[in-house]
């Protein structure tokens, strides 16, 4: 089988397209690179969606945490503490075990005039269950970052907004929110990088890889177990993730430029590495 045939057979194996059987013997470098790259689709899927949805929840939680009302502030504080204070690994297990306990036939929702059956089986599958956990987890970490940035929005900016007669939504939308994002962006970039790294935990933490559809690290450990040689598959994973990290840094750097575009060159904040947010 030539390398191009291998690519055609396995490039989308992780989402169930192409050859069903994984290679079992005489592993070639081409097979390893293709299959591990195919697994990367899941890492990007989990990372990108969790980051996207998490962004909105994080903004809401950060605002709630900044609220004067105890009833709004306390739940936000507990949410952040719960997800930042415990290991992601345990959160995955906990989520999986509780999704498994849900009734298999679905839950009947009685709406009075009609009974809906909400099926629950999909929650135990990685594409949904793990995504929910990652979404909540990144929302908590990002909320803490956004909250810190919200507290350091310069007083003068808010006073200026008041002087222009801005209130409520327009003040938030035009003054507070952009400044908060600008201040939080370097830390948020790090959060994004580590979220993508954390997606490799999914298939090692309870969620089964259904029909051997796994992520990059799942296939790498498959090859390492079969060939008994860790020196080829793991460096391939490392290479893919270095590329992915560079892409994330580039995209977030572009956004950083846009957020800082009104500032003089010297005052712009650069993105620096701070290992704040490993789970």
């Amino acid at each position: 089988m030539s390398c191009w045939d291998t690519v055609q057979a396995y490039a989308f194996r992780s989402i169930g397209v192409g050859e069903r059987l994984l290679p079992r013997s005489d592993f070639t470098l081409c097979e390893q690179v293709t299959l591990i790259g195919s697994g990367l689709i899941w890492n990007i899927y989990f990372g990108a969606l969790a980051l996207f949805f998490g962004f909105f929840l994080a903004t809401a939680v950060a605002l709630a945490r900044n609220s004067h009302h105890r009833l709004i502030r306390k739940p936000a504080e507990w949410f952040i503490f719960l997800f930042r204070g415990s290991p992601l690994f345990i959160q995955f297990f906990l989520a999986y075990e509780s999704f498994v306990l849900l009734p298999k036939n679905g839950i009947d929702l009685n709406l009075g005039f009609v009974t809906l059956t909400a099926s629950t089986g999909w929650l135990t599958r990685a594409w949904a269950g793990a995504l929910i956990v990652l979404f909540l987890n990144t929302a908590a970490y990002s909320a803490e970052i956004f909250y810190g940035a919200l507290r350091s929005v310069p007083k003068g900016d808010i006073e200026a907004a008041d002087a222009y007669g801005m209130t409520g939504w327009s003040k938030f939308r035009r003054v507070i929110w952009p400044t908060m994002l600008r201040l939080a962006w370097p830390a948020y970039t790090n959060e994004a990088i580590f979220l993508f790294h954390a997606t490799t935990l999914v298939y090692f933490s309870g969620f089964p890889a259904w029909r051997q559809k796994g992520d990059a690290l799942y296939y790498a450990s498959y090859f390492a177990d079969k060939t008994f040689n860790p020196f080829i598959p793991y460096p391939i994973v490392a290479g893919y993730f270095i590329l992915l990290t560079l892409v994330v840094i580039t995209l977030f750097g572009l956004m950083n430029r846009r957020l800082n575009r009104h500032l003089p060159q010297a005052a712009r904040t650069r993105i620096r590495f701070k290992p704040q947010v490993l789970r």
């Binding site: 790294h197 690290l217 790498a220 390492a224 860790p230």
Partner: peptide, 21 residues
């Protein structure tokens, strides 16, 4: 710099395996 680009879990799987061999 390596922990910046490579997931830590990959190291946890790789290092004991490679050390052993």
């Amino acid at each position: 710099a390596m922990v910046r680009g490579i997931p830590d879990i990959a190291f946890f799987l790789f290092v004991p395996f490679a050390m052993d061999q």
